[in-house]
């Protein structure tokens, strides 16, 4: 319990430090008044807008106002959309989460069987091809690979749509484009684009796990019992290699949300990532700050969950911390 409270306090501290860094950084970009206010506005109008946006106050005062608002869940009003920044982020969030989950699904469903295959027949030509492919998956720059997907599947073959999110369907109260056929057609390319790095990682992990587990005694024992090969692989082997795979996939979730910035820009996917790039380009500071704080909170929460889960699984971590 002490461990969890300590970790929580650390998390809050990190969030606070990040809020100062993000705020100070974003406010140092330039003079937003020049960019946000119509150059043809009269001087009186200009002053009124500066006052309305709070741009005339000293920086530290702006920060405390910002922090106070932040604690009330108010991240300011977007300069461009003229609506609360947090609302806009939350509006875009489902599209990004949908993309990240679809990518994880693809990585697991394709990656584990390929990794198993390569691990069970390490010397086969097909296995070598799978491993070479996974190296390529690591090396391919994400954005270029996305462009190649568009070139192949949309421009040359004409099978899949190029940009945007398909119509949204509703299923069990959840609204997602995964529930319509057109939506699935739209998400296929971006999700695969986002999945490739993770897919390569899952293949390597599964293969390494298979190579490690297969020579062990309990597998030989299962064979000696006369179990069928299929049962050995899918029950005994898989259960043992899934733990590291699940850990890595879970921890990569944050990274997927970050990398969605690239995927969303290429495929014009209306998620948070595209929003942040657009906002950086027009210096829509409330959106930038809100996005960064949301991401920081997501990451800190993920790390906290992983830490706590580990401390439950492995008591040594807890004891080490307590002994410090």
């Amino acid at each position: 319990m002490v461990f969890i409270i300590r970790r929580l306090l650390q998390a809050v501290l990190v969030a606070l430090v990040m809020s100062v860094l993000v705020f100070a950084g974003v406010f140092a970009i330039g003079n937003p008044a020049d960019i946000l206010i119509d150059p043809e506005a009269t001087q009186a109008e200009r002053l009124r807008l500066i006052q309305q946006l709070g741009l005339d106050r000293p920086l530290y005062e702006q920060y405390f106002i910002f922090l106070g608002n932040l604690l009330q869940g108010d991240f300011g009003t977007s300069f461009v959309f003229n609506r609360p920044a947090l609302h806009i982020i939350f509006e875009r969030m489902p599209a990004t989460l949908e993309l990240a989950f679809a990518a994880i699904f693809i990585a697991v469903v394709i990656g584990i069987p390929l990794g198993l295959w390569a691990g069970l027949r390490p010397n086969a030509v097909s296995s070598k091809a799978i491993m070479a492919g996974s190296i390529l998956g690591f090396s391919l720059p994400n954005f270029w690979q996305g462009i190649m997907l568009i070139l192949l599947f949309s421009v040359t073959l004409g099978w899949l749509p190029v940009t945007g999110r398909g119509p949204v369907g509703e299923f069990l109260g959840m609204r997602s484009s995964l529930f319509t056929l057109e939506g699935l057609r739209h998400i296929a390319l971006p999700a695969f684009n986002l999945a490739v790095g993770l897919l390569a990682l899952v293949i390597r992990l599964t293969r390494a796990g298979t190579l490690e587990v297969m020579p062990q005694d309990f597998i030989r024992f299962a064979r000696a019992k006369g179990l069928r090969e299929r049962r050995i692989i899918f029950i005994h082997l898989l259960r043992n290699i899934l733990i590291p795979v699940v850990t890595v996939v879970g921890m990569s979730f944050g990274g997927l949300i970050a990398f969605a910035v690239v995927t969303e820009t290429i495929f014009a996917w209306p998620g948070m990532g595209k929003l942040i790039i657009d906002s950086i380009n027009v210096l829509d500071r409330p959106i930038i700050v809100a996005y960064l704080m949301v991401i920081v909170v997501v990451f800190i929460t993920l790390n906290l969950i992983v830490d706590i889960l580990y401390s439950i699984i492995d008591p040594r971590i807890r004891l080490e911390e307590a002994g410090q």
Partner: peptide, 27 residues
Amino acid sequence: FQFILSGQYWISVYPGIALLVLIVAIN
């Protein structure tokens, strides 16, 4: 990238291949 949809692939593809070769060689 802006010319990809009109099928003018070479403007994006060749620099990408150069980038890929560079990264794969280093790796």
